[in-house]
């Protein structure tokens, strides 16, 4: 465990906490894409298949449980909760996530480190996580108004993967034969997808103006 990875995990944890707090306290999910939340639930479900078979550390298991519980409860809140689901604008959140799931699944079948079910699922979850934010970014562009909790959520989500890249660089130089191109490339693609959001987020923060994404 290194500081970059711990900071990355904490940032990731913060992003789901911010989102859960927003939905739980103001009982609203306005501006949040259910598609992205469902994709994240799928990412964790396919990433953590080994949660009960391979014990790595208490920290690892607890964090996995937290991410699984939070992502599924956010989806539950947005789909079932009688008050929250009223604030979900489904006619704006129209990104068909099958267009993301199928290519990631096909890619994982061809590009993986070992052709086993668990390994393909794990690789699928990496590719899917890289693009899972797209429905959310599309929704932000459409609705154009970003309340600061949603802005913080997306920012923290992008920051966590950027910290993970630093972690991979650190581990590459400190651990022998630590080479994982699949992880690194999908993590880089994921972070680049946030790049334009970061640009507008920092500008709005610097000029102290409300965050607006160009149409």
């Amino acid at each position: 465990m290194n500081i970059f990875r711990l900071a990355g995990d904490m940032t990731h944890l913060m992003s789901v906490i911010v989102l859960l707090l927003k939905i739980h306290t103001i009982k609203s999910c306005a501006g949040i894409s259910l598609k992205t939340q469902e994709l994240y639930a799928l990412v964790f479900a396919t990433r953590y298949l080994d949660i009960f078979t391979d014990f790595i550390s208490l920290y690892n298991t607890i964090m996995k449980l937290i991410f699984l519980a939070s992502s599924f409860s956010i989806v539950w809140y947005m789909r079932q909760h009688k008050i929250v689901r009223r604030s979900y604008d489904k006619d704006q959140d129209t990104f068909r996530h099958l267009f993301l799931i199928l290519p990631c699944l096909l890619l994982a079948l061809f590009i993986n480190e070992k052709f086993t079910f668990k390994e393909v699922m794990w690789t699928f979850s990496l590719f899917l996580e890289a693009v899972a934010i797209l429905p959310q970014l599309v929704l932000l562009q459409r609705t154009r108004n970003i309340d600061n909790l949603t802005g913080q959520y997306v920012f923290l989500l992008g920051a966590y993967r950027a910290l993970y890249i630093l972690n991979w660089i650190y581990r590459y130089f400190t651990e022998p034969h630590y080479v994982h191109w699949i992880t690194w490339i999908s993590g880089l693609v994921q972070t680049l997808l946030y790049a334009d959001f970061f640009y507008y987020y920092f500008n709005s923060w610097k000029n102290n103006v409300k965050l607006q994404l160009p149409a």
Partner: peptide
């Protein structure tokens, strides 16, 4: 143990 190196990440 090598395969664990990335699998130990979240």
């Amino acid at each position: 143990a090598e395969e664990y190196s990335v699998k130990d990440e979240l």
